[in-house]
C-alpha cells in the first residue's frame, strides 16, 4: 500500500477540493432561495447582489400570506376558518402526499407479497406488464388521464393527484424485491398451523417487509409532493392547488417579485427537505433496492 502513497494522497486532496466545490455549487440554489426570501425588495432588485442579506425582512412572507385567502378545509357543507391561500396549499399538499403514501404502501405490500410468494396462473404475465409499464414515460399517460378523471368526476379534486401515484407500479416492484427474502418454510408452517391467508400476511409477512415499507413510504411521500406535472394538469381551481402549483402560478403572475417567489419556494421546499434529511437512510435503501435486477 505504502508504495503508491504519494500519488494517491495528492489525488485524494484534489478530489476533496473538487467535491467541496461541487457541494457548494449544489447547495447554493437552496441558500439563495432562503436568503432571497429574507431580503428587502431593494436588495433583490439591486444590480449588485448581496451574498449575505444586509438587512433581514419578513415582508416577503407577509405578502405571500396576504395574497389570497381560502377556507382551511371543506368537507361537504363543513367549511373551515379562512386562512391565507398558501396555508391551504400546504395543507392540500400534505394531505395528498400522506394519502398517496398510505394507499401505496398498503396496496404495494399486499401485491408485492403475492407476486413474490404465491404461485398462480397469470403471475408471470402480470409481472412483465408491471415491468413494461415502469419503462414508459409516466407523463405521457397523464394527458389521456384527464378525460378519464373528468368522467369519474375526480378532475380538479385532490384524489386526481393521489390515485395515479398509487397506480404507478414502482411500489409493487420494490415490495416484490423485499418479499423475495421471506423464507417459504415460514409461510408453509403458518399454513399447516391453519392460519388464514390474512393472518399470515399480518403476522409473518408484514414484520419481515417493514423496512421495505419504510423505504417505499418516504419515497412515495417525496415523489408525490414534487410531482408538479401531475398537479399542473389535474388541479384547476385555486383552493385545490398544491404548494408547488401555487408558487408556479404566483411566479407567472408576479414574475419579477423574486423576494415573494423565494418566500413561496422556501415554504414549498423546507418541509420536504426536513422530511428527507430525517428519513434519508430509508430513502437510500428504497432507491437501491428498486434498482436491483431492474
Amino acid at each position: 500500500m505504502s508504495k503508491k502513497n504519494g500519488a494517491s494522497t495528492s489525488y485524494k486532496v484534489f478530489s476533496w477540493v473538487i467535491l467541496i466545490l461541487l457541494a457548494l455549487f449544489f447547495l447554493f440554489p437552496l441558500y439563495w432561495i432562503i436568503t432571497g426570501a429574507l431580503k428587502t425588495p431593494a436588495a433583490i432588485n439591486a444590480a449588485k447582489p448581496q451574498w449575505w442579506p444586509s438587512e433581514f425582512t419578513l415582508r416577503n412572507f407577509q405578502v405571500l400570506f396576504s395574497k389570497r385567502s381560502a377556507p382551511l378545509f371543506q368537507f361537504g357543507s363543513v367549511v373551515g376558518p379562512t386562512v391565507p391561500g398558501a396555508i391551504r396549499w400546504l395543507l392540500n399538499t400534505v394531505f395528498m402526499a400522506v394519502m398517496a403514501m398510505i394507499l401505496t404502501c398498503i396496496t404495494a405490500a399486499m401485491a408485492g407479497y403475492a407476486l413474490a410468494k404465491k404461485r398462480f396462473i397469470g403471475r408471470a404475465f402480470l409481472f412483465s406488464l408491471i415491468v413494461a409499464a415502469m419503462a414508459l414515460p409516466k407523463q405521457v399517460i397523464l394527458i389521456p388521464l384527464i378525460r378519464e378523471m373528468s368522467k369519474l368526476h375526480l378532475y380538479d379534486t385532490i384524489w386526481s393527484v393521489i390515485f395515479p401515484t398509487v397506480g404507478w407500479p414502482f411500489g409493487v416492484f420494490l415490495m416484490k424485491q423485499f418479499s423475495e427474502g421471506i423464507p417459504g418454510e415460514m409461510l408453509e408452517a403458518a399454513r399447516i398451523d391453519g392460519a388464514s391467508e390474512w393472518k399470515t400476511f399480518t403476522t409473518i409477512v408484514y414484520p419481515m417487509v417493514k423496512p421495505g415499507i419504510g423505504a417505499l413510504a418516504i419515497f412515495t411521500f417525496i415523489n408525490s409532493w414534487n410531482d408538479y406535472f401531475l398537479q399542473l394538469i389535474m388541479l384547476a381551481s385555486n383552493v385545490n392547488y398544491t404548494i408547488s402549483l401555487g408558487i408556479a402560478t404566483m411566479q407567472a403572475e408576479n414574475s419579477t417579485d423574486y423576494g415573494l417567489i423565494m418566500a413561496g419556494a422556501t415554504l414549498a421546499a423546507i418541509p420536504i427537505i426536513i422530511v428527507f434529511v430525517i428519513f434519508q437512510k430509508y430513502f437510500t435503501k428504497g432507491i437501491t433496492m428498486g434498482a436491483v435486477k431492474g
Partner: peptide
C-alpha cells in the same frame, strides 16, 4: 438535495 427541493422551487 436539488431533487428533493422540487422542480418548481
Amino acid at each position: 438535495l436539488p431533487v428533493v427541493t422540487g422542480s418548481v422551487a
